[in-house]
Design a protein around this nucleic acid. Structure first.
Lengths: 337, 337
DNA sequence: ACTGGTATCGGTACCGGTATCCATATCAGT
DNA sequence: ACTGATATGGATACCGGTACCGATACCAGT
């Protein structure tokens, strides 16, 4: 029955004006101790909750930070989110998440939707946005940070690393370790632009060394352990003599490892596996999978910090922050040695 | 410079009143084709985005559904979220996520925060809420669905399954398969109430059969593969003769499996492993881990549907929907014969 | 007693939309 | 030509807060 209590109700109950009640609850200057206590108490008794909508509409600002990621099934993004939480801790900001499922249309809708909440800033995954989406962000007039990638032109600021270079570097390392016959197994490369960039970098390094992929297999579903198993089986059937398989990420690589373990194929003795991301699943068999460890939490934190500092007047102005991932060959180093 | 276009700007540009513009953009009755086109065009040209805050404040309703989960690192909740997305598809609702990290205080804050957005409904993980949090939900006067669990008293409606019974059932099945010497390995049981409930159910079934855990080990960190490895090593050191280990979930169990594989312990030949959730990581080695497959996506979908239908006038009124998880013994059935 | 300063409060005008109700135009039917 | 129904547009009053500025009270200093 009692429809939700409003600030006016609280004020009335405390015997003060709306304004005083508002100030008391927000802890803003110029309210006597006595009134603060009275208002607090009244709010408590009425179960007053406040109305974010009215507050931000009126004050023309909000403490929301919109975060757009492609996918939550991949733990990588969960970790980015956790980094973001860290980065905004204490700033009073509140993150709001949106998931695009790698669908550009959905991405456009979600970003538009988020903008309609008048967020203070936006964190968006990826640099390669459709034109319309890009315009949306450009017109938003709020700080925008694009994360995970730096191979491209950000709308505003960006934090991430070069996937092309990451692919190149692990390829160089694997070649230096003596591997020569490379296969590739990837999932959903048309959707996952960044995985595609890594593949390109990897292949570029191969070619510079007079090599190339001996064989490639691809699945169109999203990456998963199961897909990794199947792809690996396919690849080894087509090209049994590869001595290294590069996977689009660690999930797929883990599937490959599991397949090899059950099939009795020594890893990395007979065939070396390389993935991407340094996921904990790969740590289930320490060192078996070569990987590139990426600073995900760091990226989230940095992105959040950029937004927060941009809000403190400092105009971000197209910062591009490059973090460096770290190649980890695991047991491969010891393979031939 | 041009500060963001408002509806008034669009209306002016289209040569109509604010109301007509509002109606045209929302596709509500009684606007001529000609004006709809004019308004649409004007909105397009001005890059008008709309203001969710003002709209919901004015109309006294919102299309937000708040979703509170404890953790995103555990894929289970990502899948619940994806089920929720399915469930609200086409209803025009929009989910907003909050993560509590299993912290009751944070949970309270997040729920309070969400309520201040005047959401149309709330989906909250778990039945066991602190008193203050519970009151918050009771006073909210919006549909609330608690998910994942049904062992307890919901504030409003709930969708899930009985963790106690899930524990009992897999225990019964394992006993029936001939296992007798059980060990337990779990993570963060004080935080993860539902894992604790499963343990209780499991133990209850053991006792009913004149058995009990031979040995238990626990870690206080959140569940992970790494923790599973260590716990398993510890447990097998303390009690080398267990023939079955029950883990708090599949992540931990997978760690156990990996440990055994590397230590050359046959699974499930020498020791059987049982977890919970039917996670894809366990499917990396099909059948090796006994598990209870839970309908996570289903839970999310159902919860979303309850909220949506509650909003269509149908007062939900304390529905408690029990879904049944499914015991999967994997290779254990074949173990002894 | 008068002035000026400080600490507290309240009144009013919004923020950007939407609900509601009223006004006007158009047209068929008699 | 007049009536009433139907279709369409606009005016006004909010929704629940906050910014801004002015009002009041009280006290010290001269």
């Amino acid at each position: 029955m009692k429809k939700k209590a409003t600030l006016a109700d609280v004020a009335a109950a405390a015997g003060v004006s709306k304004m005083t009640a508002s100030r008391a609850l927000r802890g803003v200057r110029d309210v006597s101790k006595a009134n603060i206590a009275r208002v607090r108490q009244a709010a408590q008794e009425l179960g007053y909750v406040g109305n974010f909508l009215a507050a931000s509409l009126s004050s023309q600002r909000s403490d929301l930070i919109g975060v757009v990621v492609p996918n939550l099934a991949n733990i990588v993004f969960a970790q980015v989110l956790s980094g973001i939480s860290e980065g905004i801790a204490g700033s009073g900001m509140q993150p709001v998440f949106g998931v695009t499922d790698y669908d550009p249309d959905k991405e456009y809708d979600i970003i538009r939707n988020m903008l309609s909440w008048q967020p203070a800033g936006l964190i968006v995954t990826g640099l390669d946005l459709p034109e319309a989406t890009r315009r949306l962000l450009e017109n938003a007039e709020i700080p925008v940070v694009q994360i995970m990638d730096i191979d491209g032109e950000p709308v505003d600021a960006c934090v991430g690393f070069s996937h092309i270079r990451a692919g190149e570097e692990i390829a160089q390392a694997l070649i230096a370790a003596g591997l020569r016959k490379f296969g590739y197994a990837g999932c959903a490369l048309t959707m996952d632009v960044r995985a595609a960039k890594r593949r390109i970098g990897f292949q570029r390094a191969l070619i510079q060394n007079g090599l190339d992929f001996v064989e490639e297999v691809e699945a169109f579903e999203l990456s998963s352990i199961g897909a990794g198993r199947l792809l690996t089986e396919q690849l080894l059937k087509k090209a049994p003599d590869v001595d290294c398989i590069y996977f689009s990420n660690d999930d797929v690589a883990a599937g490959g490892l599991f397949y090899c373990l059950e099939a009795g194929i020594a890893v990395p003795g007979k065939v070396a596996l390389a993935g991407f991301n340094g996921l904990s699943i790969a740590s289930g068999f320490p060192g078996r999978i070569a990987t590139v460890r990426t600073p995900r939490r760091e990226i989230g934190r940095k992105a959040a910090e950029i937004i927060c500092s941009a809000l403190d007047g400092k105009p971000a102005g197209g910062e591009a922050i490059e973090l460096t991932p770290e190649v980890d060959l695991g047991l491969i180093g010891a393979r031939k040695g």
